[in-house]
Structure formats: C-alpha cells, structure tokens
Design a protein around this nucleic acid. Structure first.
Lengths: 337, 337
DNA sequence: CTGTTAGCGCTTTCAA
DNA sequence: TTGAAAGCGCTAACAG
C-alpha cells in the first residue's frame, strides 16, 4: 500500500503538496499537480480514509436507526437516505433495533464513539424521552415518526390532515357507519391518524361507537388486521366502511370480507394507508394515502447534512406532501335492498 | 472530549495501562484497573474509534453490495448479515447498486480505501468477471448468487436440486403439460432452476415445447409475471401447470388465471420460489421453495469474519438447506370432463 | 505489572 | 506556490 509520502517522493514534492492535490485545493501549480497525478497513477495510490477521518475527526458515516428493514415502508425510506448520503459523500450504516429500546440506545452510542457523524431515527415514539440526552449534542433527525416533546428536527407528512381527508371522502360517499382498525403502538402517526378520524366524525356529527374501534398488532400485521376486521364484520350493526391504519391491515380486512362473503366495495369500503404494500396486486386495488417515502429519506439526509456541517442547532420541522388515492376498495354506500 | 491521556492523568497511570484496561488485557492489577475505571467514569471518557481504527488499520465495517433493499428477499438476508455482524463487532454498510455494475464497482472501491474490511456481494452474476481483480486481495463472500468462474467463497442453496424437486412433485401430481415462467437475467439461480426444470422433464421423457417457456422481467415483477402467464394460458394447448421462477411471478400467474376464469389449482397448478413475497396472504396460498434467507446472511457474515481474521484464502462453498412447501396453488391434474 | 515511546497516514498551520 | 513540521488518539513494542 503506497502512502502519501511515497507519492511525494515519486513526484518530488512534499506531502503537503500531495495532500493539497488530493483535496483539490486550487493553490497548486498545474504542472506540479500533473506530476503528483502521475505519481498517484504509477503507485496506484489510494488515500487511506482511516487516517483522513482520524485526522479530520469525522467518520463520514451516518447512522440509521430502524426497527426493521424487512418492512418495505422503511426500505423505501432507507433507499432515499442511502442515495442522498452517497451523493453527499457519506456512507449509511443501518442499525436494526427490532423494536428494542435497548438496541436503539446501543446504536446511538455509536455517535459518542465517533463511529458516525450523525443519526436518522425512523422509529421514535412517545417513549423516546431518553433522546433528550442527545438533543443538541449530536446531529440527529427524526424521520417519519417522532416524539413531539423531543425538540429534534424532523421530517414527515401531516398524518392528521391525511386521515381527515380519507374520512371526509368516506363520508362523502355516503358512509355513516365507519369503523376503524388502529393499533396500540405509540407512534405519533397512529395517534394523529386516529385524531383525524375522530375529529372528522365529530365534525359531521357522526356517532363514534366503541365497538367500531378495533386494533391490529403493533406492527400492523396482515393476520391481526384480518382478525380485527372479522370482529368488526360480525357486529350486529355491521360498518359499511373501515378506515385502516395501514395497507397491510386493509389487505387483511379485504381478505376477511372475502372469506365472509361480503363484497368490497359494494357492501363494504376499506381504506389503507402508506401505499407501499402490494396495494395494486389483487383486486380490489386498495384506496390509500401515498407517502413520499423516498423523499422523506432524502430530505432527512439533507437536513442531517446541514446539521453536521453547520453550527446552527435550530429545531426544524418539515412536512412533505402526501397523496390520497381513491381506488377500487371504496365506493358509495349502497342503500339496503 | 476526554482522551486516553486525560484518563491516564486522572488515574495516575500511563496511557499504556489505560489502553490495556480498555482492551481487556488481563495483565493489569485489579486495583489499578479499578482506578482507571473510576477515571473513565468521572471523565465520561469514550474511546475514539476513529483513532483506534486508524492505529489498527481496520475499519470494523463490512460492506454489503445489494441491488435493492426494497426487495424482501434481500432485506431478510441483510437482516441476517446485520445481526451476525453486530454480534461479531462489525457494522454493516449497505451499498445499493440498483443493478448498475458501475455502482457495484464504485462500492467495491471502498475496500481499497479501507472504508470496509471486507464485502458480501448479493448479486454477482455471469457478468461479474471484473471481480477477478479482487479475488485473493480482499476478503469477499458471494451470498445467494454467484459467478461460478470467480473463485470467491460463497453461500447459497442448491437451486438445481430444489427446482428438480418441484418439477418432480408436479409430475407426480399427474401433470405433463408443464410450462415455465423464467427470466432473462444472468443469475446463477435462474440458470440452475431452469436446468433443474429441463433435466427433470427430460428424465421423465416429457416434451419440452418452446411455447411453454415464457419470461418475466429481470427483477421478476408481478406484472411481467402476469403478462407472461396470460401468454401461456392463451395457448391452444394450455399447460396444466406452471413452474415460476419466483413467488411474485407466481402471484402474477395466479392473478392472470383469476382474470381468465381458470381455477387454481383445479385447472392449473402454479409453483413459486423463495417463499418471501406474501405467499400466504390470499388464497390460493402458493406452493414454493423456502430459502433460509436469514441464515444465508448469517453464514455469509461468519465466513467473511473468518476470512478477515485469518490468512487462509481457501475457496469455500457452502450449501444451506431449503424446504419445499406444498400449499394450495398446486394439485393433481384433473382429467378433462 | 507498569511506563516510555515510536509511530500509523494524513491535514494544516506557519514560514518561506 | 511550496515545504517543514506538529500532532490527531491510540496501540504495541520494548524496557524495566
């Protein structure tokens, strides 16, 4: 492995000059630079990043704390982060927490040890108070999910508004018996979507019955969604629409309806959320809210970059546009024959 | 930020002693170590990994070159790699190539620059000859896919044998008009599965017709699989079974059959491959071959670890067990009514 | 068991 | 426009 001083010798210049060439400072005479390039070529020299990082006290690595890369929703965000990071000269270290707070903390330790210059958190929730320890000390961004009380910059969509839009649509279609399949996790998105649901019902003076609120598993599994839907559909006064907290849950609801011989959307409208999970694989295609996952990731990375490379530590909040997409799983409420 | 010499001063020992304590060498007197720990605590000292890595000339990072983390198949392997890496004290840097060889090469440059100690490649194919440049020079493992002519250690399943097993099963069920939906990508798995398909047909002296070989897109997309299935099912002599190169393609075939009013499995048997993509979401559940994705990743990481930490550069090949799972998308061939 | 000390390869001030 | 030289924080010989 050739080092910078080998190159210096070969080019008959000082290491400082080689370093200048390497870092594209334009205060090197053209011919000198030429000689240096030749030497680099000849020795097939590659700067040792370990040494450079050590010297500059930076790792050029950013940390992504994610509960689960197997979930396509996160995978898309990750891709956005990764691409932007690469663009900005950073590598993305993905740290899987499997929803364990311990693991999450362990991951964040990397910041202290300078293994990463900053972090993007994908799964903050209302139990992320421990994050306060990091607030202000390290460059951190919350992406998609966040803890409202932790003043760390974040990027997400307006889940409340999106949920309202979905429910308004259902009401416009004539639905009044609107149920929901939510989740008992602590994600801000869940809370906001539920608030949007409840508020819209209230606004239209539609009765909110307890029996119309069911729960899927914390990770919105297909089977838990299906089970919840079955409970809802076995009710005496069966709902004519179900507002689901996620696409997978909506898919579960569709499957439940299918097995119970209930036609979607003729007899039952179903909406999903996120637009990632096979919403257009089988009919009926799922009506849902599309999140700009890739952009979410991209912007999170850009924000983090700002944070790392400037001294500002203002607390920023960025909301990205979502899109409501009406498809085949919803339709006007039919009157009873 | 406290440094090792601050700690040394505080504990009234030399930096060497602190280093020894830090690295858990047990040649430090207990009481001295105690003093050091106290000092570390007091100064809330964190060893600077940048410095350590530089000194030891290692990054403690391994590189994963993957075409696409959005694909659950890869995502599961990645999780396996990540968990094992974490266990072994390494961080996993994920480099997305989006199937571009240029990107792939760019990623591998990180090895030269010492940004990573080794690499795991998830998408070598028959066009990966350029890898020969790296062979022997850097610790590298091919996982799941590989190039047969590149003598770099690898871990995968026996795709040929698995495919044979699937086709044997179809033949046992009485099928003779067996078609396939393959792909024109250059993956070894595709070739081996196709060879298994062809050889098994030959062995049973079953006619292999050209019209019974169709192709999905290179990334096995649902829609391309569906389109291919439609072409197959519109044939005069319609096949009674379709051997699909992947689950997503099989799902596409199921959808195609559904739209054409062909009953699965009564009139048409369909098999998938990999067992990752929603094979048990909608009926019929897909008959498929389950790959041990997580273990594939785990073993790849362990092999890489061996490679990094020893001088052996033997070329190893590891085959993991797969599992054939018969489900609802296949059944005995019915005689024409 | 502990301390002294020489670097690892690079960037960056300072001086020329 | 260039060079000399200090030093980032740590590990590991070597010496005691």
């Amino acid at each position: 492995m050739a080092t910078i001083s080998d190159v210096a010798k070969e080019a008959e210049v000082s290491v400082a000059t080689v370093s200048r060439v390497l870092n594209k400072q334009n205060n090197v005479k053209k011919e000198t630079a030429e000689r240096v390039y030749k030497a680099i070529e000849k020795l097939s020299f590659e700067p040792n990043i370990l040494a450079r990082n050590f010297r500059k006290n930076e790792s050029r690595v950013i940390l992504i704390i994610t509960p689960n890369i197997t979930n396509p929703y996160y995978a898309h965000i990750l891709t956005g982060i990764g691409d932007a990071a690469s663009e900005l000269g950073y590598s993305a270290l993905i740290f899987n927490t499997a929803n364990s707070i311990e693991k999450e903390k362990e991951g964040m330790e990397m910041l202290k040890k300078k293994r990463a210059d900053g972090a993007i958190l994908l799964a903050s929730n209302s139990e992320s108070k421990w994050l306060l320890d990091y607030e202000g000390k390290y460059p951190i961004i919350q992406c998609s999910e966040y803890d409202e009380e932790v003043k760390i910059s974040r990027v997400s969509i307006d889940n409340y508004k999106a949920a309202k839009e979905v429910v308004e649509y259902l009401i416009n279609q004539g639905h009044r018996r609107i149920a929901t399949i939510s989740s008992k996790n602590n994600y801000i998105s869940t809370h906001q979507r539920m608030n949007g649901f409840v508020d819209t019902l209230k606004k239209h003076e539609i009765l909110m019955r307890d029996s119309y609120v069911e729960y899927s598993s914390e990770d919105y599994s297909f089977h838990s969604g299906k089970a919840a839907a079955i409970r809802l559909l076995e009710l005496k006064e069966r709902p004519t629409a179900i507002f689901c907290i996620s696409d997978t849950v909506a898919l579960g609801a569709v499957a439940a309806a299918g097995e119970m011989g209930i036609k979607v959307p003729e007899e039952l409208s179903i909406t999903g959320f996120d637009n990632v999970d096979n919403t257009t694989m089988f009919h009926p295609y799922i009506t849902t809210v599309s999140q700009p996952c890739f952009k979410l990731g991209e912007n999170a990375m850009k924000m983090l970059f700002q944070r790392i490379n400037s001294k500002t530590d203002s607390h920023e909040e960025m909301l990205l546009d979502y899109e409501f997409i009406a498809r085949e799983s919803t339709g006007p409420k039919k009157n009873k024959r």
